[in-house]
């Protein structure tokens, strides 16, 4: 009986431990994340512009490694940096919002600079938006 109780307690502890671990599961580490797709900003934007539904199926939630020329850099009040890459469209681009859970070595980008980011594709509004980006 005592033994049974002991085993029960142990199981409960393990289950609780797993539950706690699951609940506190960390966000994906973007620096170590393997890219599912590698392409340039122009291609990515054109894919969304041509057929959004198809592009959503292809790229949504994927870790995308995207290269291009910096069009614009902006920093919000909380210090989060976003880099817009040239897409071939005059108005819109590919926005890479830099990950706020990663320590970045470099955040001072200049327009015209060639860069490669890795981030999670969240879809297209007017621009294609990648979040949790890290410089590659």
């Amino acid at each position: 009986m005592k033994k049974l109780l002991g085993i029960g307690l142990l199981l409960a502890l393990i289950a609780g431990g797993i539950g706690y671990f699951m609940y506190n599961k960390p966000h994906q580490n973007m620096e170590n994340a393997k890219a599912d797709v590698v392409l340039d900003a122009r291609e990515l934007f054109t894919a969304f512009e041509a057929n959004e539904t198809e592009a959503n199926q292809k790229y949504l939630d994927k870790v995308v490694k995207v290269s291009g020329l910096v069009k614009e850099v902006s920093t919000d009040e909380e210090g989060n940096v976003s880099v817009t890459l040239e897409s071939g469209s005059e108005m819109f681009g590919v926005i890479c919002q830099m990950d706020n859970l990663t320590q970045h070595d470099k955040t001072d980008f200049k327009p015209g600079e060639q860069v490669t980011f890795k981030g999670i594709c969240t879809g297209m509004l007017m621009d294609v938006v990648l979040v949790r980006c890290v410089l590659v």
Partner: peptide, 16 residues
């Protein structure tokens, strides 16, 4: 006003 659902960021990965 438009927003991408997947661009919402949570504290806990599981919640997201």
């Amino acid at each position: 006003f438009a927003v991408l659902i997947k661009a919402f960021q949570f504290e806990k990965a599981l919640m997201q």
